[in-house]
Structures are given as structure tokens and as C-alpha cells.
Amino acid sequence: MTEKIMENVWKGMKTTGNVDEEDKEIYLFGFYQGLIFLLNLVTALLTGIILDMFLESVLFLICFIPLRIFAGGYHAKTQFRCYVMSTVTTVILLYLIAFLQKNMGVEAIALYIIATCIIWKLAPVQDKNKPLDLDEQKKYRKRVHSLLIIISCISGCLYFWGIYVVPAVVVCVVCQLSIVLIWGKLKNHAHGCTSTV
């Protein structure tokens, strides 16, 4: 079924653009990955709407996606497992964000500092399907560090102004990402795949 759909997609690509047959797998892989990303995005936003937390879901995606792209970390073995895990995690994190907006205290800040240090030290954590050379690792690490500094400054300022939604989102994003990186690091260690930076 999927093969038939992808074959029709390829035919459509060939009629609308200048694409080479030898690049078919690359184009179809990119198209498929784009669809999966879009599905995850729409699901996260719909979850936010259902829980009456649309703003929080948008802020979560804005903070999480760039960090996740450059930091790497654990990846599920199948797209379906990834989708289920992402959906369940989104629901849990949205509830945590709601809780933290009313209960942002010293514990949350301490947790944020610890999680930030973990990301700062570990990122990027490569995956066996996406190995990174030395230059890419340095470039990705620098981007992760820059993003952490930016979101920390913004959320810190908003916290002191009494606006807690962004700090709550940032605490959850950073804590989740630190777990994903540790998990990815452990998975790599178990499979003998290590980072050189």
C-alpha cells in the first residue's frame, strides 16, 4: 500500500519537476520524512487545542524543534513508535507546563540548571543512522550552546517580569532534551557507537 502511494508521489514529482531517476530514493525519503514531521507537528498542536493549551504547545515546538535538530539524542526504531512516544510525551509535558506555571520554584530552577549542564556537555549525540563528522559535531554543539543561551536569557527575563508560561515551557523542553540525550548516549554506548567530541 505504502509502496503504491510512494510510486504515485514519484510520478507526480516527475511530471512537475526536473528530477533524476537515480535520485528517486532520496526524494521519496525526504518526502516521507516531511510527512512524518508534519504529522507529529499537527498532532502536537491538536493535543494543545484539546487540552486548551494551544499557546503552550506552540511555544514548546518553537523551543524544542531547533534544539532537538542540533542536539540529536535517542531515536525510536520505527516511525510508529516514534509517533506514539512523541504524542504521549507531549501530553505529559503540557500537563507539567500547566503545573509549573503555577508552581515555578527553586526546585524547577535547579532542575533546569542540571538539565542545561547535561545538554551543554553531551550535545550533539549522534545516531547510527545519522553519524556526524568532527566539523559537524563542533558546529552542532555551538548551535545548541547558542540556543540554550538565547532561551535561558528570554525565559529568565520573562520570569522576573512575572510571565511564567515561557519559563515553564523552557524548563520542560530542557529537561526532556537532557533525558533524550542521556538515553541516546546510553543506546550508542550499548551499540559501540561513540562521539569523538
Rank of each mutant, 00 (worst) to 15 (best):
G30D: 03
L147V: 07
H75C: 11
I154M: 05
N103V: 07
C172R: 01
E25G: 12
C153N: 08
C117F: 15
K11W: 00
P167C: 04
N129T: 09
M13Q: 12
I150W: 03
I179K: 08
L67Q: 04
K102L: 13
F37C: 11
L41S: 03
I62F: 05
Q33A: 12
L93F: 09
L35Y: 04
G48A: 05
I92S: 07
L61N: 02
K139C: 03
V166Y: 00
H145G: 00
P66H: 01
G73I: 00
G30M: 03
V125N: 04
I109V: 14
L148Y: 00
C117P: 01
A123W: 10
F31V: 15
T78Y: 06
V197N: 14
V106N: 09
T15R: 12
T15Q: 14
Y159M: 08
N129L: 08
K121F: 15
I26E: 12
I151D: 00
I150L: 12
L41H: 03
C193R: 14
M53K: 14
F80V: 08
C193E: 15
E25K: 11
T196P: 02
E56H: 13
M104H: 12
L59D: 06
T196K: 13
T2G: 13
I154Q: 03
S155D: 04
K187H: 12
A98V: 05
A76F: 02
L51C: 07
P124D: 15
I182Q: 06
A115P: 04
P66R: 00
L177E: 13
F80Y: 05
S57W: 05
T116F: 15
I151A: 00
H191L: 12
D135I: 12
K139G: 02
T116V: 13
K121A: 10
A168V: 01
T43N: 01
Y32H: 13
L55N: 11
W183Y: 14
L147A: 09
D20H: 12
F80R: 04
I150H: 03
W10Y: 08
G73S: 00
I5L: 15
L59F: 12
L35T: 05
M6H: 06
V84F: 10
V125L: 03
F29H: 15
I182A: 11
S152F: 04
Q33T: 02
E3N: 14
S152N: 06
D135K: 15
G105Q: 04
F31E: 09
I119S: 09
T194W: 09
F60C: 05
K14E: 13
F160E: 03
I36M: 14
Y74K: 01
I5G: 00
D133Q: 06
V58N: 01
N8C: 08
M13G: 09
I154A: 08
N103Q: 05
V197R: 11
L38W: 06
